[in-house]
Design a protein around this nucleic acid. Structure first.
Lengths: 118, 118
DNA sequence: CTGGATCCCAAGAGATACTG
DNA sequence: CAGTATCTCTTGGGATCCAG
């Protein structure tokens, strides 16, 4: 066997991660929560352009999958804080690796795109 | 400053990567191409469930962004081979990191989901 | 303040048919 | 073989209004 195959990336796992954080706002929320617990309205302001509806849906999803915990303070006016879970925090490194790749190859991608469009 | 902030993950870069490979089929195509050049029909068979249309659109996108090159052999019947570019190959490691995270925390995610749904 | 409910539009994606 | 063109259905997501 002289093939040069890369050990097959685990498609199943890859899909699972994207299903968890591949949507429009999930990663941005996690990045915010990486800086510590945040209230709903704080997130709303920090994530420029997000609608209440989408923020809510995104947080529900993250909570459902155990990436975020929701803590309600029985006060008036109501206060709710969202916090990253421990294993969500472990996503930080893989995410940085992706981020680094993008930063490194940004120019090449841009050039390829311009060339293709011409 | 005693804050415990993680160095802010680069949101911009993160978004760029997801725009490149965050759609339904792109990553699967890249995983296939990681095993060497593939023909259109080979990909079509390997990616179970993909439609011709989506495979075509996905390949166009990857090609446009310089992640894949398209080589046409002037034969009859026609033959076309798709190949990963060098910098697309560098995505392999970050992707593996994500994949590893998913594999490691699969149970926790599943449990969280079952708990939430109950 | 925190969000759920509803309406509506636009993008995503499957099925089918046709062409170089 | 390797696609493109339509057509249609589904899903994502914004706007707005209502409620605990």
């Amino acid at each position: 066997m002289d093939n040069t195959e890369t050990p097959p990336a685990d498609m199943c796992s890859l899909r699972e991660v994207l299903d968890l954080v591949g949507d429009k706002w999930a990663i941005r929320v996690l990045v915010q929560l990486g800086g510590g617990p945040r209230r709903f309205s704080e997130l709303e302001r920090a994530l420029d352009g997000v609608s209440r509806r989408m923020l809510s849906l995104t947080l529900r999803g993250l909570e459902r999958n155990g990436l975020v915990t929701r803590k309600v303070y029985p006060e008036v006016p109501p206060r709710v804080e969202y916090t990253m879970t421990a294993h969500a925090a472990e996503l930080d490194e893989p995410l940085h690796a992706l981020s680094a790749w993008a930063a490194k190859h940004r120019e090449k991608v841009g050039a390829a795109r311009r060339a293709y469009d011409a």
